[in-house]
Simulated scan of single mutants.
Amino acid sequence: MSYTGEVKVGGAPDVRELPALTITKVAVDEKMSNNCYLLRCNDTGEQVLVDAAASSETLLPLIGAGGLSAVVTTHQHWDHHRALADVVRETGATVVAGEPDADAITEQTGVAIDRRVSDGDTVAVGTCSLEVIRVTGHTPGSICLLYRDPTGHPHLFTGDSLFPGGVGGTFGDADAFVSLIGDVETKLFGTLPDDTWFYPGHGSDGTLGSERPHLAEWRERGW
């Protein structure tokens, strides 16, 4: 069956097989319904997890005997790293996070950040590479991860910075919203094509092309 990105907590993961990279999406925690993404290099078997959000009892069997080279936390909010300590303890994975959010993640989880990343950095998944894009606003150090599939369209993991229907919340902070919508417009929509498929931290996936016509509307409404 083809990948849809529609997952439910307690349900089966959805798996997308690209020529070089396999993307497995799973939802965890009934209350928050976070998405976690396990990325596996098809050449080497190396794996990277995007957001150890919760439910290590779900994530660790998904990771399996192949182990984990790194776990990337997209931002500092509590619901995106509740299983981080368990996953790192069991796998020994390198811990990656955006520079301005790193200390907060450590304070909340007790897990040291091994790599503090920002624009221009990359995270290897075997022979594949994820480009780090810092998008400031939902939190100071939120990051997106971009995989440029050499045989198809780009794939973008957006955390809580971009969803179908709008950008992430900025909790009434007007300056943070201006920063977030500016970075999303410039760094994501301004550089990537319409067929870019994006994978958010909650809910369904989307494409930049479907959302692009609404950018002015988002800016006007202020959220």
Score class of each variant (00 low, 15 high):
residue 36 C to Y: 08
residue 20 A to Y: 13
residue 54 A to G: 14
residue 32 M to N: 12
residue 205 D to N: 13
residue 17 E to G: 04
residue 102 A to D: 02
residue 199 Y to I: 08
residue 160 D to F: 06
residue 149 D to P: 02
residue 8 K to Q: 15
residue 134 R to N: 09
residue 46 E to Y: 05
residue 127 T to H: 02
residue 41 C to G: 03
residue 184 V to M: 05
residue 135 V to C: 06
residue 119 D to T: 06
residue 95 V to L: 01
residue 221 R to W: 13
residue 167 V to D: 08
residue 101 D to W: 05
residue 201 G to I: 11
residue 117 V to G: 06
residue 143 I to T: 12
residue 83 A to Q: 05
residue 206 G to Q: 03
residue 202 H to K: 12
residue 125 V to N: 00
residue 92 G to M: 01
residue 143 I to W: 02
residue 88 V to T: 08
residue 194 D to V: 09
residue 143 I to A: 08
residue 124 A to D: 03
residue 27 A to I: 08
residue 45 G to Y: 07
residue 142 S to D: 10
residue 42 N to M: 06
residue 85 A to W: 13
residue 179 S to L: 15
residue 213 P to M: 07
residue 164 P to K: 05
residue 209 G to I: 12
residue 36 C to S: 15
residue 146 L to W: 08
residue 19 P to A: 04
residue 125 V to M: 01
residue 49 L to Q: 10
residue 182 G to V: 10
residue 108 Q to F: 11
residue 143 I to E: 04
residue 206 G to W: 05
residue 72 V to F: 10
residue 186 T to N: 15
residue 100 P to T: 02
residue 43 D to A: 13
residue 76 Q to C: 08
residue 210 S to R: 13
residue 3 Y to V: 02
residue 58 T to H: 11
residue 196 T to Q: 10
residue 80 H to S: 06
residue 73 T to R: 08
residue 195 D to I: 11
residue 54 A to C: 13
